[in-house]
Design a binder for these strands. Structure first.
Lengths: 250, 250
DNA sequence: CGGCTCTTTGACTGAACTCAATAGTCGTGG
DNA sequence: CCACGACTATTGAGTTCAGTCAAAGAGCCG
């Protein structure tokens, strides 16, 4: 069920009690808001009053320079909190725009503060979530700074596939990928023309099948290998089964 | 006094009571540790047990790829917390190494948790600090992805000058900048050769004077202009005087 | 059937990289 | 006091990856 994505996402980072999952569920039935594609949800410089959590659709974090150059900093999918910092920082230092039609839950400061005080498990999960977001940002720096164009795109596909899998939106190598080549270019620090050529190479080498908005990765391991993808930076919570094994090993 | 840098840094993000400043001061006299230049303080993949705050010297956050390529993610100076996430994340997703000789305060989880519970103002400042760190990381993505080599280096000088100013280590256009051209290259995603050439251009245009480890910026505004530097992303706390003016305006 | 958005292609250019060599700078030890 | 090595900065020449400019297809929708 799509509406539980926020809960599913947070549960990936910290164990939540049934009550806490329930609270997140209730939230999701709260103030839903829709945005059509190509709109802005938050603008650079705006003061932050409410928190948005994506329930459905894709959005992006981005910054623009004075002369119009734009860097996309992250893609946001179901379960992602757009602005976990709204409690503490006064002004948005970047914008958030939609890539597809998007549905969000809007939670205002007060409500969130109450929830967080009442449910420490949720508070912890929120913070872990923010820290993982920071880790992802660091990995993007590595990609843009060090990886070749080919590795960079591969890595992005690996990352989004992993993140979508956590919220149940990817399986058997298939997931949505509704990003056009202009946005892909601004996310990877390349030009759209070059993105196009590198995508062709990825396709020719059989690493991906991409017909917007559908992505199919025939062999995830192989793609991860050429991308130099190491999932550590996503800080996956060890699976229950893995945890059990680890205990036995001790 | 150098030892108060951590307190000074945190005070820049949230108002601290005299007691809280005192606590930070006491901390700084606690477990000091020295590292010679070129050492690693934390290694990618290590489990995190203690928190380090830089008291003196320069360090860097970095990640390496399997084949040895390295991306420097951030420079750390007095007052910077190396790993604010050590409470919540289990493994370091990147390494921290020293650039100069470095002195740190070591605070273990337990101590920090006690302090944070007893002093909510400090807790808040710590979180704001973590969020600003994330914002800086986003700006680095913008630099590497969109700015030209020339703008990128200029921007880095502007950023470090601002950050050093906050902890009283920069004034009248002068501050330390002990980073060699190889590290500068890995921080900006360029090669050392190209860094060298761009630095020459910066010098020729009179924008900087750099004789390691001393940096002099004759005209900060001019450098900020060519760098497309907008300090918003550092989330400076409005000065008391500015705050008063803002109130009068209302 | 336009009109829009997005993708693809071709030809040319240029910013930044590679490789390789040279030149300072500094501390150490003979 | 000088020689030496380690490290860093600088320079030159040739190469390449990715960008620019411009145009042509594809797909979709009203």
């Amino acid at each position: 069920m799509t509406f539980s994505a926020p809960a599913q996402k947070l549960a990936a980072y910290a164990s939540l009690s049934a009550t806490e999952v329930g609270v997140m569920g209730a939230l999701s039935e709260g103030r839903l808001q829709s945005y059509s594609r190509g709109r802005d949800i938050v603008l650079q410089g705006q003061s932050l009053k409410t928190m948005f959590i994506i329930v459905e659709g894709w959005a992006m974090r981005y910054k623009t320079l004075a002369d119009g150059r734009r860097q996309i900093l992250s893609f946001l999918v179901a379960g992602d909190v757009c602005d976990p910092y709204c409690f503490l920082l006064h002004k948005a230092d970047h914008s958030i725009g939609t890539i597809t039609d998007v549905t969000t839950v809007t939670v205002d400061r007060g409500t969130m503060e109450d929830i967080v005080l009442a449910h420490p498990g949720l508070a912890k999960a929120m913070w872990v979530n923010a820290l993982v977001t920071a880790s992802i940002q660091r990995e993007w720096c590595v990609s843009i700074g060090q990886r070749t164009a080919f590795e960079r795109l591969s890595h992005l596909f690996c990352e989004m596939y992993s993140r979508l899998e956590v919220v149940g939106l990817a399986q058997e190598g298939r997931c949505a990928f509704p990003v056009n080549q202009y946005d892909l270019a601004d996310a990877t620090g390349m030009t759209a023309v070059h993105v196009n050529r590198v995508l062709q190479e990825l396709r020719n080498r059989g690493l991906i099948q991409l017909q917007r908005p559908d992505l199919f990765i025939p062999d995830l391991i192989r793609l991860q290998t050429v991308a130099l993808f190491d999932p550590l930076y996503l800080h996956p919570k060890p699976r229950e089964s893995d945890a059990r094994e680890a205990m036995h090993e001790q």
